[in-house]
Amino acid sequence: MGIDQVNFATLDLNLLRVLDALFSEGSTVKAANRLAMSQSAVSGALSRLRHALGDQLFIRQGNRLVATDYAAGLEAGLREELVRLEALLAPPAVFDPQTAKGTFRIAASDFFAELLMPPLADLLQKSAPHIRAQLVDLVPNDYAASLERRNADIALIPDLALPDWVNRAPLFHSPFHVIARKGNQGIAELKDGMQMPMEVFCALHHVLFSPEGNLAAMGDAALHRVGKRRQVAMTVPVFSGVCRAVSESDLIALVPAQLASKVAETFGLRVYEPPMEIDPALIIGIWHKRSDNAPMATWMRSQVFGLMKVLDVDS
């Protein structure tokens, strides 16, 4: 049976919600949990969908259901139509942060655990006590994936090319500073705030922030332009681990300037200007266009972005 033969007059539209959940979860158990249904009810709905659409829709592959080619062609369009239907049926309401309830997920590195979440916690306690904020990991190599899969409402990332269904807002520029522990003999003659000499920077061993375990980053590109190299002794997937490693060893690290300033006293660190010129990274906030007019998401974006923009070195 082809799609043009489906009798929409008799098709239960609730089945489309089940189909969307199966696309997202790849499992009847997980889809049932998402929809607050029993697994048997989801399995029954899948059987009815198969009959109505004349296609298997999903093939079991290990522990996961994999969409057939026919079903895969329905996924994006189905989700867009369900989002439109939800927006159409949603009653108009004035958003009141004091009474609003919900969860807002922020995909970002742990840099923001230090610089965003503390002031956001204070803001929400005072202005929106029933809204829960969650900081979640970024999807490696695909920052937009969390938004597409609804695992995050916004992502805070370096500026880069993005799909046309993603909206963006510039937040702040982040230059880089060098951190070293106060007892590091390699920097004994240097005072806080000085520019670290190139020979010292290249002689000392580095710990590098890299969730993927890469051995090079922006600092290495800047060094390459002046014909120099640094010695990376360790990579760590979180900034807190970078700072901890530096605080308890003679390793040094290049980190965002705002983070260096925030944690220097806590970790007993000295902070220096790097010996080479590194273009400051522009940090942006991104979100899916489907959330442009969602009241809670709009309000939360405004609060989060406002807290971030004060970090700009030019502000």
Rank of each mutant, 00 (worst) to 15 (best):
M300R: 13
A152R: 02
D96T: 12
R105I: 13
P129C: 12
P211N: 06
A9L: 06
A216G: 07
S24C: 13
L35I: 09
R150Q: 12
A145S: 01
A233W: 09
R84P: 11
A76M: 05
L307E: 04
R34I: 13
S210R: 03
E212G: 00
E248A: 07
G54Y: 00
L171T: 11
K30T: 04
H51Q: 11
L65P: 04
G26Q: 02
E75D: 14
G73P: 03
S247V: 11
M218K: 02
A21F: 12
M194T: 09
V207C: 05
L13V: 15
P119D: 08
S249E: 02
Y272H: 14
A253W: 04
L124F: 04
F305C: 11
D279T: 08
E114C: 14
K126E: 08
N167C: 12
N7D: 14
A203L: 02
H177A: 15
L215W: 09
T103N: 12
L85R: 09
M296N: 08
L116M: 04
L282R: 04
L307R: 01
G54Q: 00
E265D: 04
P158M: 15
A128C: 13
W299G: 02
P129L: 07
N293F: 13
G219T: 13
I179M: 07
G73W: 00
V226M: 12
G183W: 06
T68A: 09
V6Y: 00
L138P: 07
L208Q: 02
E114L: 14
V255S: 07
A294V: 15
H173N: 04
H130Y: 11
A145Y: 10
V310R: 10
A121I: 08
Q61K: 03
A169M: 09
L123M: 10
A133Y: 02
K262S: 14
L120G: 06
V200H: 10
A233D: 04
F305V: 03
S261D: 09
V42K: 05
Y70P: 00
S315A: 07
F95D: 08
L11S: 01
L259F: 04
D192R: 05
I252P: 01
F104N: 02
A67Q: 05
P197S: 12
D312Q: 14
I179H: 05
R181W: 09
A245V: 14
R64A: 01
G102M: 13
T298P: 01
S174T: 09
V226E: 05
A113I: 15
L156N: 04
E189V: 14
D292L: 06
A121H: 10
E114K: 06
Q134P: 01
A180M: 03
D122R: 14
K101S: 10
N151W: 01
K309Q: 13
G227K: 11
Q185H: 12
E189Y: 07
K262I: 14
D312G: 09
V94E: 13
A233E: 12
R17N: 06
R168I: 14
L88F: 07
A253S: 11
Q5G: 00
N151D: 15
